[in-house]
Design a protein around this nucleic acid. Sequence first.
DNA 1: CTAAAAAGTGTTGCACGTACACTTTTATTT
DNA 2: AAATAAAAGTGTACGTGCAACACTTTTTAG
Lengths: 225, 225
Amino acid sequence: MAEQAYYSVHPKFHAAVDCIIFGFEEGELSLLLLQRNFEPAKGEWSLAGGFVEDGEDIDDAARRIVAELTGLDDLYMRQVHTYGEVERDPGERVLSTAYYALVDIKRYDRELVRAHNAFWIKLPAIPRLIFDHDRMVQDALRFMRYQATVKPVGINLLPEEFTLTQLQALYEAILGERIDKRNFRKRIAQMDYIEKTGHIDKTLSRKGAALYRFNREKYDGNFKI
Amino acid sequence: MAEQAYYSVHPKFHAAVDCIIFGFEEGELSLLLLQRNFEPAKGEWSLAGGFVEDGEDIDDAARRIVAELTGLDDLYMRQVHTYGEVERDPGERVLSTAYYALVDIKRYDRELVRAHNAFWIKLPAIPRLIFDHDRMVQDALRFMRYQATVKPVGINLLPEEFTLTQLQALYEAILGERIDKRNFRKRIAQMDYIEKTGHIDKTLSRKGAALYRFNREKYDGNFKI
DNA sequence: CTAAAAAGTGTTGCACGTACACTTTTATTT
DNA sequence: AAATAAAAGTGTACGTGCAACACTTTTTAG
C-alpha cells in the first residue's frame, strides 16, 4: 500500500528510442533515414524510432527497431544519451533515448528498407530532421568518433573480410581527415587482432589486395573492453 | 485524432533520476549516499534519486534532486546513462537516468544532508547499494574519470581558490595513481586558464602555498567544450 | 637557533607519432 | 608481346611530448 503510493503519486511518460544507423559507402559515412509517411510530421525526415513496450528492456527496444528496418539483429549498438526536455516532441511529452548502430551496408534487407520509405544518405547531404533529431545525430557522431579512436568499433561497418585500403578509407571517413598510408599500415601491423586471412581481393585492383579479419578473441584477450 | 492514437497505443513508464554525487576530502573521492528511511528497500543504502515530474526537463529534475539534498544549485552535472531493464526496480517498472554531480565539499548544506539521512562515504568504503545503483556508480566513475583526463572538470570539486598540492591530490584521487610533482606542475603551467591569484594559503604549510583559480573565459576561448 | 613540514624547481632519455616517395604486381589495351 | 594504367605495398629520419629522477627554499614552532 505504502509502496503503491510511493510510485503512484508520480507521473508516467512515453519512453521512445531513436536510432542513428551508420553505414559506410564509397569512402563516406551514411545514415539510414526515414521519410515519414505518417503523422506527426508527415513528409519530413526522421531517425528510425519507436516506443518502448511493456516487458521490453530499453536496449531490446532499440535492437527491435533497427531489426524491423534492416533485418539485422546482431549489430554493434550503443546508447548515446536520453533527451528529456518538456517540449522536445510537439505532440505529447516523450522521453527519448538515442542509440547508434553500425551496419555493414552489404548486408541489410533492401526490401524492408524500401517498405519503410527509408534511404541511405551520406553525411554531408543529411537533410534537416524533425524534433531534436539533428542534435541526436551530432551527439551520436561525436560519441562514435570518440569510441572509434579508442577501440576498433568501426570494423562493424565493414564486411567480415576487408582490405587495408578499405579500412583506411573507413577511418578517414570516421575521423574526417586524410591519413598517411604508411603510417596507417604501421599502426595496424602492431594490432595482432587484425590478422591476414590469406585470401586476396581482386575486385578493386589488378594487383590484388590482402584480406584481413578482426579476431575478437585476441582483442578481448589483450584488453578488457 | 490520428495523432492521439499514434501515442496512446503505447505504454507509459515512471521516469526516475539517480544522482552520483562526488565530493573530495582528505585526498580521497567520496559519494553522498542515503540510508533509506522509507520503502521500498528501507534501511538499505542508495543514491539520491527521485522522479521526473510533469512539466520538468529531465536535466532539471536531476538538478532539483541534488539541490534538495545539498542546497547547491550551480553544480557541474552530466548525464551518464539510462537504465531500462524491465526488472531493475523490483517495485514497479521505472526507467532511470543517472547523472553525476561534482560538489565542493566545503559548500554543501550540512543540515539538509543530515535531515535526509545522507552521508559522505569514501569510495573504498562504499557499501552495497540497492537495485542497480552499484552499476550506476561504476559507470559514472568511469565516465567522470574519462572526462577528467580530457577537460578540467575535477576543478569543480575544489574551492574557488586552491593550491597546486590540492589540485594534484585531486587528480591522484580521480585517476587512482600517484603523479610526479614536477611533471604535474609543468603540465599545469602550460594551462594558461589555471592562473595564480596572488593569494597565499598558510593553513596547510609553514612556507605558504600560492593559490590558483580556474579562468573559465580563457578556457572557453582556447577550446570549445 | 634548530628542526620539521610542505612548497617549489630542471634535465635527460625514450617512445611514439608524423612527414615523406618510390617500387611492385597484374590486368587491360594496343 | 609490349606498353600502360591502377592500386598495393614498403622504410627512414626527425620532432614532440611524456616519464623518470632529488634537492633547495621558506617559514613557523619549539
